[in-house]
Amino acid sequence: MNILVCIKQVPDSNKVEVDPVTGVLKRNGVESKMNPYDLYAIETALRIKEKQGGSITALTMGPNQAAGIIREAFAMGVDYGVLISDRKFGGADVLATSYTISQGIMKSGEYDLILCGKQTTDGDTAQVGPEVAEWMGIPSLSNVSKIVELKEDSIIVEMDMTHEIEIAEIKYPCLLAVDKDIFIPRLPSYVKKQETKDREITVITLADLDDKEEKHYGLNGSPTQVQRIFPPEVNDHREVWNGDGSELTGRLLHKLKELKFA
């Protein structure tokens, strides 16, 4: 069983602010970490490997520093690491990112199962996983909340569909986006970290990919463009309502309807 886990480096804190006048992003420290949702994907991979054997590869796309999260994946028990990194990949939106990743995956090896987290904490789109699967032409499932059974050529999982749980069988090769809390991710081990500190990480650049056409990557390969960023409105709104019971109830009902809760 060959498992690939897609991971991403994100800022350590979401406490970013935008200067309301200049529209400049004020950064607060440069520490970064692995996207917390990806830890669940790694844990899922490790649990499957414990049962089924095989190997786990962690893959990320980003600057050279992103190798740090691959080292972290090693310390959790992942076997191999792949870093897709090229300046020409900069400025990629969901489409270009997923295309680059799918190209990188196909270059790095053959996998039965690709796992990714539900979403990232910086972009929050939850869309890269399914798009990667589409580029690769393999089936995918999102909201995977439980692994039910591992079979020879397929896997049975539970999906959380908000009001119901769907149990489905999906054939390998496939991509699963796992929910938070599918398993509690283990902590990286110091012992494993020492053991793997010299382990090699495969670096893939544009020159290594099958499709070397620059136009398909980075900003150029991105249909969407960010025009501007601005700070959100803060809810510091405060109203005090006085009056008799039924008057208050009336206003409350009205407000609940306005907020779409009633």
């Binding site: 939106d93 969901v94 489409l95 997923s98 295309y99 929050d124 789109t125 939850a126 869309q127 890269v128 996983g129 399914p130 798009e131 699967a133 589409e134 580029w135 995918s140 499932l141 999102s142 909201n143 999906m159 959380d160 569909m161 908000t162 991105s222 249909p223 969407t224």
Partner: peptide, 21 residues
């Protein structure tokens, strides 16, 4: 749960942009 799976899949197939949420 449906839209979040269908939209990206379709966007990649149509090679077009998708803005989530």
């Amino acid at each position: 749960t449906v839209g979040r799976q269908l939209a990206p899949r379709l966007a990649a197939r149509l090679k077009t942009g998708l803005t989530a949420d």
